[in-house]
Design a protein around this nucleic acid. Structure first.
Length: 344
DNA sequence: AAACCTATCAACCGCTCCTTG
DNA sequence: ACAAGGAGCGGTTGATAGGTT
């Protein structure tokens, strides 16, 4: 489909900084008619501005409750931690900081925190099994440089990108993001889940069979209840027992049950979590069922290595009743982050 | 005092996805 | 099923202020 030229290229529109008068007109109009219909707003309100520009101005500066400047140390720390998990997904990060706009956080990051993050970055160490797997892939790629290595570690003879490469899988990284998105909906008294946020059917929760009090969680990040994933106390950690939702069920259950499974690319989260990773990569029972192309768990983890938080980071606080033991890894459902440990 | 450099941040831009007809 | 329009996101740009030489 063709795209309309950007409205900012239209003749006769004001550009650059907004004047106080323009602000007043926009504020009055939105207060009277509500948000939305941005494309028509300038004409109706009598503003010589692009609709997108009006939307941006309203969301970033004029809407009620917006905070400007003076980002507190707490907010700064939260931004750092969320960015570590979510990357440059500013709208999601902003969603965790009431009154802050994605633009402000993005600017703050680019001008200050990115430098700090680089300075603080700890070199990340791959666990030995992943390092070996990574080396094997590299060796094979070197032997046959014109061949692609597909996501299952197999070689393909075509130069065309595989479908998976064309459309990247929802990664473990996205899984973390999904958990955060879910928490946002669950904690906000007036959930504002955007269409785009909703598109992956992203919600996830665990049943905490432990009866110990829920530890204080910043913003109470995860849903407190779930009927879908059972977690049992295993002494120092919790082992995932089951995950009842299949991706086929999600559509029907979405309405009444906010907790659901979701796809991680071609696989279901429950598949990933149910899979047995303790065996070698040549295990006779592949973790993910046909007809999906086999994707090894090693590969999945390798792909997402950069999103894994190193267990040596000093500020990690582990709450044993929020750990899901998964093979040699442990998923931690605690604090604003969902974290993954190796060989815990 | 002037020129230059750097940091900040508001705004722009292009792209993607969703909704609607 | 398809196309067009609406909306939102994230990267980038450019104006400006403040600091340094």
């Amino acid at each position: 489909m063709g795209r309309r030229p950007c409205c900012s290229k239209e003749e006769g529109l004001n550009r650059g900084a907004w004047t106080a008068e323009e602000d007043r007109i926009l504020t009055d109009y939105v207060k009277a008619h509500g948000e939305g219909r941005w494309a028509n707003l300038p004409k109706r309100a009598g503003l010589k501005r692009c609709g997108k520009s009006c939307r941006l101005r309203w969301l970033n500066y004029l809407r009620p409750g917006i905070k400007r400047g003076n980002i507190s140390p707490d907010e700064e720390e939260l931004i750092m931690r969320l960015h570590k998990l979510l990357g440059n997904r500013w709208c999601l990060i902003a969603g965790r900081l009431p009154g802050r706009s994605d633009n402000e956080i993005k600017n703050y990051w680019n001008s200050f925190l990115s430098k700090r993050a680089r300075k603080d970055d700890i070199p990340r160490r791959k666990p030995p099994e992943l390092q070996r797997y990574s080396d094997r892939l590299e060796d094979r790629a070197n032997l046959q440089p014109k061949q692609n290595v597909d996501t299952s570690g197999n070689l393909s003879s075509t130069d065309q990108p595989s479908p998976r490469e064309e459309k990247p899988s929802m990664s473990l990284g996205a899984f973390w993001a999904a958990a955060l998105k879910c928490s946002e909906g669950a904690t906000d008294p007036e959930p504002r889940v955007s269409r785009q946020q909703d598109q992956h059917s992203t919600c996830f929760g665990i049943t905490n069979k432990d009866t110990r009090p829920h530890p204080p969680i910043d913003g109470d990040i995860l849903p407190k209840e779930s009927e879908n994933v059972e977690v049992a106390n295993n002494g120092s950690a919790f082992k995932l027992l089951s995950c009842s939702h299949r991706k086929d069920d999600v559509a029907e259950n979405t309405e009444e049950d906010p907790v659901m499974d979701f796809d991680i690319g071609d696989v279901c989260l429950s598949d990933l979590l149910d899979a047995d990773l303790t065996g070698s990569s040549s295990s006779s029972s592949p973790p993910f069922s046909d007809p999906q192309p086999a994707i090894s768990s090693e590969e999945l983890m390798l792909q997402d290595w950069n999103l894994i938080i190193d267990s040596h980071q000093a500020d990690n606080v582990w709450a044993p009743n929020h750990i899901v033991q998964y093979s040699s890894s442990s998923y931690i459902f605690d604090s604003p982050e969902v974290e993954l440990l190796w060989e815990r």
